[in-house]
């Protein structure tokens, strides 16, 4: 099976690890967990309020390699997308891109949930 180097990189050298200041305006934080294995994932976005575009994304994940790769890929994908576009990212796309085995599918679900949680947090904060 041949995988593109780009994909494997998400495992070996995950992108966007770190955090944004969660009190800063225009940010949104999603914190999710997987009860199947006890993984915890935090994903944060920074949004340009003028056009609702996600300008930056960071994550920190305590979990297995697949969970880390899924969150790394998720941050890469949301950057540059509008929040509506980001809302439509499906876990199955992550499964396909990372070729996750069935036993690791919950890792991709976690990443999808994290994106949605971060966006709804942003919306709540910007409205309030």
């Amino acid at each position: 099976m041949a995988y593109s180097d780009k994909v494997i990189d998400h495992y070996k050298d995950p992108r966007n690890v770190g955090s944004l200041d969660k009190n800063e305006k225009n940010t949104g934080t999603g914190l999710v967990g997987a009860p199947e294995c006890g993984d915890v994932m935090k994903l944060q976005i920074q949004v340009n309020p003028d056009n609702n575009q996600i300008v930056d994304a960071k994550f920190k994940t305590f979990g297995c390699g697949s969970a880390i790769a899924s969150s790394s890929l998720a941050t890469e994908w949301v950057k540059g997308k509008s929040i509506d576009e980001a809302m439509s990212i499906k876990n199955t796309e992550i499964v396909e891109e990372l070729s996750l085995p069935p036993v690791k599918i919950h890792c991709s679900v976690l990443a999808e949930d994290a994106i949605k949680a971060a966006i709804s947090d942003y919306k709540k904060r910007s409205e309030g």
Partner: peptide
């Protein structure tokens, strides 16, 4: 081996 050199 699962992708990325991780052990399942």
């Amino acid at each position: 081996e699962t992708l990325g050199g991780t052990f399942s």
